[in-house]
Amino acid sequence: MTDSCLKQLAARRIFQVEYAQEAVKQGSVVVGLVNKTHAVLVGLKRNAEELSSYQKKVIEIDSHMGIAIAGLASDARVLSNYMKQQSLGSRMTYGRPIPPDRIVSQIADRAQLNTQQYGKRPYGVGLLVAGVDEAGPHLFEFQPSGLTHEMLACAIGARSQMARTYLERNMDKFLNCSRDELITHGLRALKETLSQDKELTIDNTSVGIVGLAGEGAKGKFESFKLYEGQDTVPLLEAVEQSESGGNAGESMEVDS
């Protein structure tokens, strides 16, 4: 072991891992939150230049699970492909959707191995994993270090602190709210992170939702649904309405 290695460990720090965590902070923000019935992921998509397409932020893994990414999209693709394979494997051998906590610990093990093996580097991506199992909806945060937490609400990526503040302040409101209200809370948290000259549009907003099926539905779970482009119009309108409605009951003109 080299001298610098020993120094790192004496300080209980591995710089490579810390640099990887910086990559997550550079990525555009994603927010996740759960209530009793649903788990929601929302993300702010970025385009590299005016004429290019937007980078995907929310990815469906299986019909009961999706992820939102912040950081290196190519590393996220590796992880999401692995998660898709594992989910399919579970459906094949056991005929059941893989429990989200299981797959999260699997990717955590993989990521941790990358932090201590010769010739490897940590994944430069953070994930929010939203899924549903027999016990209900779950949200997990995954970091390049291999650290994972189950969360009630979480935001990662650039300027995510603003979203976390919103989530902390409004937690009691969304724990028992409806499906649509949960999406609105997610989008409002996302909106908090925007700089002055930016706003949420149908092009830069991604929403994913999964949860328990309502009364009288066919299956137990409501399949993962991804809203992008035109599909986000009603969701963004709901955000505007909730903001104007929240203004001490005073109706306000909102330009759309």
Binding site: T93, Y94, G95, R96, P99, D101, R102, D133, A135, E150
Partner: peptide, 20 residues
């Protein structure tokens, strides 16, 4: 049983596994 919510494999899952 390492899972937070315990073992959730039911008889149907077990049969699928055994047949494979």
């Amino acid at each position: 049983h390492y899972s937070t919510h315990g073992n959730m494999l039911n008889a149907k899952n077990l049969l699928t596994y055994l047949s494979k």
